[in-house]
Design a protein around this nucleic acid. Structure first.
Lengths: 346, 346
DNA sequence: CGCCACGCAGAGAGCGCTCCCAAGCACTCG
DNA sequence: CGAGTGCTTGGGAGCGCTCTCTGCGTGGCG
């Protein structure tokens, strides 16, 4: 086959010459062939085949002003991205969707707090058509940078400056954290548990606060002593559980804001000889792969479709990008449903 | 008047005009300013600043034939990328190194077995200057595709068709799997264990076979019944452990080819009331974050510097790319050392 | 004081592609 | 039978940037 002729690759010009047509016609064929008569289409296609022609992306971008690439920006401190399959799954979903639309995925990981300048420059440089951004903490400088760069962006997780799920300003995709939390606590209460504690996530993330809100929705008058804060890690979950146990030894249920913390809590419970779910019922959140199912006992938890969220983000973005009417690019946010998964811990 | 009409970004032409120099001079300044007198440099820089000029990447690529981007190709079935922080860490290292060299990271996840064509087209399209590829199983079509595309590539993990670590053909970075395994088994033997079992990984990956080889290096005459195969997952580790226990109830140590399988094995051991490390000593591999330390008891394991490997891969690739002497681009492979981390399981 | 050499700036030619516009052409309709 | 209509096709002008090559100014040196 026409392997790489060492050095330069064939150009459209070459294809056109070989097919005996003009460059314009060759271009039309390569881009779908609309409005070109069949015999010519075939000829061009054959030439493409024979020459092993592949369009030069840079040249195309230069004139069309579309890069066919989307940035995925992850501005998360080292820790979480390691222990959390969350991003991997999210990215998998994004990748699926982008691939289906022939769009490339440029990964932008923030390297330290001084790295925002690079991101800003990159976005401003028009290297990508749009962006997908994650992990916004309160006061995160990223949204400002993104807005200023004018890059169409869909956020993963409700950005902190949006007030309500119905906020129309910035498009984002998020699980129904509040509703899920509500379901979890409701479930515990239906089980007859009366002193339901909550291990919350970091207060500067909306997923934490939304879940906490859900907890409070059900337990309007919850004792503050029943609430402890962790950082979404196993260790912090263990610590929070100890606090809780010390403050309210009489608690009979725990709703942890994620499975990692739930598993930490579980360990502490076991250490202290508290039986789960008999003495204390435990519910997590996320249905995290290779965590929720692998604890002992397996975790009852709230499942969210992380990969689906990734797909959705990409879809929303691409839709906004496709809109030829530049104005109509205001995709609405989407809240994805959660479901309670019953296992043995509650 | 030399303002940006909202929509189109300023070009070099505009900068040059504003600075009162030619486009060529402006270009020189933007690219380092070598051979341009100071006053002019300043003028151009000021113009850049005032106009908010950012070079158009596509135009630059078109003429320089360098994209300033590198592809990271992950051809792994869904499962592992989710449960395994391996890739995340590796990518973190890669990202660090690439960022330091102002190079972008394009993530190429293989979506299903039919997706190789896309990868091939992408590489052939010259979208990237080089590639970093992972997870090659035996008979993986990827290497062929990559080779044919002529894309300079560094592999992560020893590709199966290389025979020895000293193989000079394809540059790769890998941990000293064999040496690490040797150390693990040696350690168990020094502990006085006589019937050391091994839970191996999938036979079609070199990391598995290399670790198995290391095991055999120490236990030259190991009973085949002491070896079971898993798939690097918790569940498969548990299954393998059951097999092993059924076949050789007298075993007094287990070396698992990764921590995930070790943790699965641990669960089974606990279920069967076998005490670890007293009755059976257990050693894992990888020192996987939020696994090795979080099991009960914590895992003694072989640590490898995954992030460092990622950095190394990127560095090797970039070095090969930088070499202006096109011929000299044959970076050697690197084997990174492993260390034994003593915890409670052995 | 004049000539040569060298350093620095500008002009211009593309890189490969898309897309506008006009030319060509077969048909149809009046 | 001529003009009109609608498709195809080709020509050509750039997209924004780099880079070679030329030209000019200046300084050094004979």
């Amino acid at each position: 086959m026409p392997d790489q002729s060492p050095g330069s690759r064939p150009t459209l010009e070459a294809v056109a010459a070989r097919a005996g047509v003009s460059r314009a016609t060759a271009s039309r064929v390569v881009n779908g062939g609309a409005g070109v008569r069949q015999p010519l289409v075939d000829k061009v296609l054959r030439a493409v085949e024979e020459l092993g022609y592949v369009p030069n992306h840079a040249a195309r971008t230069l004139v069309t002003r579309r890069t066919g690439a989307v940035a995925v920006i992850i501005a998360e401190p080292e820790i979480r991205i390691f222990s959390d399959p969350f991003f991997s799954q999210q990215i998998r979903g994004i990748s699926k969707e982008l691939t289906a639309h022939d769009t490339q995925l440029v990964l932008l990981l923030l390297e330290g707090p001084g790295d925002f300048g690079r991101i800003a420059r990159y976005l401003a440089g028009g290297h990508v058509d749009g962006a997908l951004a994650f992990s916004l903490h309160i006061d995160d400088p990223l949204p400002g940078i993104i807005r200023r760069s004018g890059t169409p962006t869909v956020y993963g997780g409700r950005p902190s400056w949006t007030s309500a799920p119905s906020d129309q300003g910035v498009p984002y995709v998020d699980a129904d954290n509040r509703g899920g939390a509500r379901a979890a606590v409701q479930y515990l209460r239906d089980l007859g548990r009366a002193r339901i504690a909550h291990i919350a996530g970091p207060a500067d993330q909306t997923s934490s606060t939304d879940r906490l809100d859900g907890y409070r929705d059900v337990l309007l008058d919850a004792d503050p002593a029943l609430i402890a804060e962790g950082e979404f890690t196993v260790e912090s979950g263990a610590r929070a559980m100890r606090e809780l146990l010390d403050r309210r030894p009489d608690l009979d249920a725990v709703f942890a804001a994620n499975d990692l913390m739930a598993s930490g809590a579980l360990r502490v419970l076991r250490e202290r000889g508290v039986s789960v779910p008999d003495e204390v019922a435990l519910v997590g959140f996320d249905d995290m792969v290779s965590v929720a199912e692998d604890t002992d006992p397996p975790l009852t938890t709230i499942r969210q479709d992380v990969e689906g969220q990734g797909r959705l983000m990409a879809r929303l973005l691409l839709r906004g990008l496709d809109k030829d009417s530049e104005e109509a690019r205001a995709p609405a946010s989407v809240i994805t449903p959660t479901t309670l998964v019953r296992r043995a811990s509650a």
